[in-house]
């Protein structure tokens, strides 16, 4: 459950935030949003792809955490199975949201329903009505995240303007004989990348965009890791996944 509210020194003066453990809130989350800065590290753990955010239709970079909707294969009761933890998870239970007092300014919101939020364990947010050292760290992290979001957005726009994204379809074969098609996943169009004029490549390199592009490409093999983890914890195992260039409708 989520209920993000504006962080309020009065209302939230007594709450404490528990430390991260196994990211239990992500149990039913089969993808997590990523910033471009973590593509390289994320690619060591799971496929890094693009999806469209449904209400605005905007492209958003995500790590795929499972092949079945609502099932995160890296979550276990004991531990987080992946090497990388999406930075979005490390922001929990905080998020950025619009500042009601200042136009076009973002400020910190807290998910009051989060398991991290309690009155006894962990770090306090306020001491004597003043932000605690911990809250200062959170603020720094959020402002860094905001910068990274901006860079990620520019990166995404660059991929789109150079037509470097293509849609792929995953066809998943299950042991019970069923077949699922997963559409709406976008990755780097390798051929388009190879055909880019030299000047564009040089520019991508100068902007430090080549690493995340290649990280996305190499991360696709991590679909096999998703299958492996899935089959460890599910009875209806995945026999195989075909990846196809999407032929339109």
């Amino acid at each position: 459950m989520s209920n993000y509210v504006l962080l309020d020194p009065v209302k939230h003066q007594d709450i404490k935030i528990k430390p991260h453990s196994n990211f239990g809130f992500s149990k039913n989350q089969h993808h997590a949003s990523l910033v471009v800065h973590e593509f390289g590290a994320a690619a060591s753990s799971f496929p890094v792809v693009y999806m469209k955010e449904p209400t605005q239709g905007q492209f958003r970079a995500v790590g795929l955490l499972g092949l079945v909707a609502g099932h995160n294969v890296f979550f276990t009761e004991q531990e987080w199975l992946a090497v990388h933890v999406p930075s979005a998870f490390l922001r929990a239970p905080f998020e950025l949201g619009p500042d009601p007092e200042k136009d076009k300014t973002l400020t910190i919101y807290i998910n009051e329903q989060s398991d991290y939020v309690n009155n006894s364990q962990g770090e306090a947010l306020f001491q004597n009505g003043e932000p605690s050292q911990f809250l200062h760290q959170v603020q720094d992290k959020m402002s860094e995240y905001y910068q990274q979001e901006q860079v990620s957005h520019e990166f995404t726009q660059k991929l789109l303007s150079l037509s470097l994204l293509k849609e792929i379809e995953l066809v998943i074969n299950f042991s019970d004989g069923k077949k699922t098609r997963v559409k709406g996943i976008y990755t780097i169009d390798e051929e388009a990348l190879r055909k880019l004029p030299d000047t564009d490549i040089v520019e991508l390199n100068k902007q430090n965009y080549l690493l995340p592009i290649h990280a996305m490409l190499s991360s696709l093999v991590q679909v096999n890791r998703l299958i492996k983890h899935h089959n460890h914890c599910s009875e209806n195992t995945i026999l195989g996944v075909q990846m196809r260039a999407n032929a339109g409708e």
Binding site: K52, Q56, G57, Q58, F59, L160, S163, L165, K166, Y186
Partner: peptide, 11 residues
């Protein structure tokens, strides 16, 4: 309204 503010993606 969204076509006007955001537009459809080409892919």
């Amino acid at each position: 309204n969204k076509v006007n503010s955001l537009g459809f993606a080409k892919l």
